[in-house]
Nucleic acid binder design. Structure first.
Lengths: 162, 162
DNA sequence: CTTTAACCTGAACCAAAGTTGAGGTCAACC
DNA sequence: GGTTGACCTCAACTTTGGTTCAGGTTAAAG
């Protein structure tokens, strides 16, 4: 183990916005944006420049992963807000807030799989039948909708010939 | 088989924008929008009102299904543009352009599944390790990127302690 | 022939997730 | 101590997929 070398960015205990950008792969403008939205925080130097704690790197990694999962920034921010403010989050903390994304991902994969299966049926018949595929019924709401425009939609398409 | 009754909207051979909205479940403003984008077309009456062919119903159904799959309108428009202009599209035509979405859906489901598996690992260790999970590496580009910011990102996070 | 519902256009507005640019300051190297 | 690169703020702009509103026309029903 060698002593930290302050000349090397990743050995310093605080990061400039440029360091954080380079190491997270996120642009400086995006980091500013996240900060405005309250997803990350910084202290300011006497010259008004941002300094980030190393922990912030992990927050940014979490933000990026969450975005890949398809979570909107506002929700990511809400999740980050549940992290303890008085200490550095532990592995357990990250585990807890990641779990929600995992469940979300499961649900969305299943939803897409169902959609794909329906699409397979519809490709098979080539008709895009609403009654058979329920493909144009975004959130499976048709069942509770009863008669009305939605039914007209089905009738309309069904009667649209080949 | 009874004769078409022009008093009933779905028996007329042309649809007003209101008819199309009611039967497709899409708002009038959205239909105007689709038309501006070239996804659907209409003829105009002497009074400048839109009249849609029945076939348009199927196009709108296709648009809605495609949106559920996650395809942007521009791409949907490009796909619709490959339909024959000189005749009413057949089941085979719809089958052809739906196939692309099916493949797309397959790819995205697999991508999300991989993401979920990685996330499971990362929840297990609680560290969001980039080197192990490649979770912050959006399009699996890291392999070809070589040294640079991307590598710095990995080094940076790996050195970020617990 | 009047009333009313449906239609028309164009412009403005919304959210999300940033980017870009202008104009100015800070800090580190030589 | 000057040059250069990194930093600062604020405002405006981008894209996608629309909605809402204002002001005016059409068409169908009574």
């Amino acid at each position: 183990m060698e002593a930290p070398n302050p000349a090397v960015p990743w050995d310093r205990d605080e990061l400039t916005v440029g360091d954080l950008a380079a190491r997270s792969g996120v642009s400086v403008s995006a980091l500013h944006f996240y900060e405005r939205k309250g997803l990350i925080t910084s202290r300011r130097t006497s010259g008004n420049q941002r300094r980030y704690r190393r922990e912030t790197l992990r927050r940014v990694a979490f933000i990026r992963v969450s975005q890949r999962v398809g979570i909107p920034l506002a929700d990511i921010g809400a999740a980050l807000a549940t992290l303890p403010g008085d200490r550095t989050p532990t592995a357990k903390d990250w585990r807890r807030i990641s779990q929600a994304w995992h469940d979300d991902l499961d649900a969305r994969i299943e939803q897409l799989s169902r959609l794909r299966d329906h699409l397979t049926d519809c490709i098979g018949c080539g008709c895009l039948s609403l009654r058979r595929c329920t493909l144009t019924n975004p959130h499976d709401e048709l069942a509770e909708a009863g008669p009305g425009p939605r039914t007209l939609l089905v009738e309309g398409l069904e009667s649209d010939g080949a």
